[in-house]
């Protein structure tokens, strides 16, 4: 049976991981490949890297971390942030990433989803959506949550899949960083609306949050803070899911 995926997310700024300071056992907590390896050994099923480098001038240097990660870890990983063209996608995939995540660029230029899917296959193209409830409607935001597009989130999710997105990451901004649980109502609605894997993001704080999101239908559970700050271990999360009869991958070697 297909396992639900636990996906730690790492923010990278100019080639260095931010927010990883709590890892005491490793020397270079800011090196993407070092942290990635630690997560892989702890049982992460996949990793997501968001390149939050502010200036596009420094981004080619920032993206150099992708190859080092690919050489180091033996699980799939996705890279997002600042990708605006098919040639950007090609560059990152050629460095060894398995998937590309696009967010603002996909809203601004829908054809990027289709072009990427045609060239690399839908399985490579992840559309990430920042969502906030506005007057009772789940609405799409871009530019790191600063711009309200007025687009309905369910409609945009369906459209992205129609264009060729092979997976969706749904970051609900109201729950993000609050550690008060994923938005399970939204997860339920979205998983009924699309036929591609859905990754829930934003709000993981306690073990039951992961269980609730998985029960709501999320195929993958993304979290940053709880893993970076070691509030929870990946093994704890998997044990909790397993107890709730949700299939998870455990290393059997």
């Amino acid at each position: 049976m297909l396992a639900r995926r636990i996906i730690p997310c790492l923010d990278v700024d100019a080639g260095r991981v931010v927010k990883g300071q709590r890892f005491q056992a490793i020397k270079d907590v800011a090196d993407p490949a070092t942290l990635a390896k630690r997560y892989a050994l702890e049982g992460a099923d996949e990793l997501v890297f968001y390149d939050i480098t502010a200036s596009s001038d420094t981004r080619p240097i920032g993206h150099a971390f992708v190859k080092a990660v690919a050489q180091t870890i033996n699980i799939p990983f996705c890279v997002g942030g600042g990708i605006t063209s098919v040639s950007d996608m090609a560059f990152i995939l050629n460095q060894g990433a398995d998937k590309i995540s696009i967010n603002t660029a996909a809203v601004q230029n829908e054809s990027l989803i289709r072009e990427g899917a045609l060239k690399f296959g839908s399985q490579c193209i992840v559309v990430s959506i920042d969502i906030k409830k506005v007057d009772g409607t789940y609405t799409v935001f871009t530019h790191g949550g600063r711009t309200n597009t007025q687009m309905d989130a369910i409609q945009w999710a369906k459209r992205a899949v129609e264009l060729g997105a092979g997976e969706l990451v749904l970051n609900t901004m109201d729950t993000d960083g609050v550690q008060d649980g994923y938005d399970t109502e939204f997860i339920q609605r979205i998983t009924k609306s699309v036929n591609v894997p859905v990754i829930a993001s934003g709000g993981a704080g306690r073990l039951e949050h992961f269980v609730d999101a998985a029960k709501a239908g999320a195929d993958g559970l993304l979290a940053a803070s709880v893993f970076h700050f070691q509030t929870l271990s990946i093994a704890d999360v998997k044990d909790a899911l397993e107890k709730a009869h949700i299939p998870v991958r455990k290393e059997s070697l």
Binding site: M1, L2, A3, R5, D45, S122, Q123, G166, E167, N195, V196, P197, D219, G220, P247, R249
Partner: peptide, 11 residues
């Protein structure tokens, strides 16, 4: 299959 591609970890 409910979802395609078959993508992820399977036993």
């Amino acid at each position: 299959a409910e979802k395609l591609p078959h993508m992820g970890w399977n036993d």
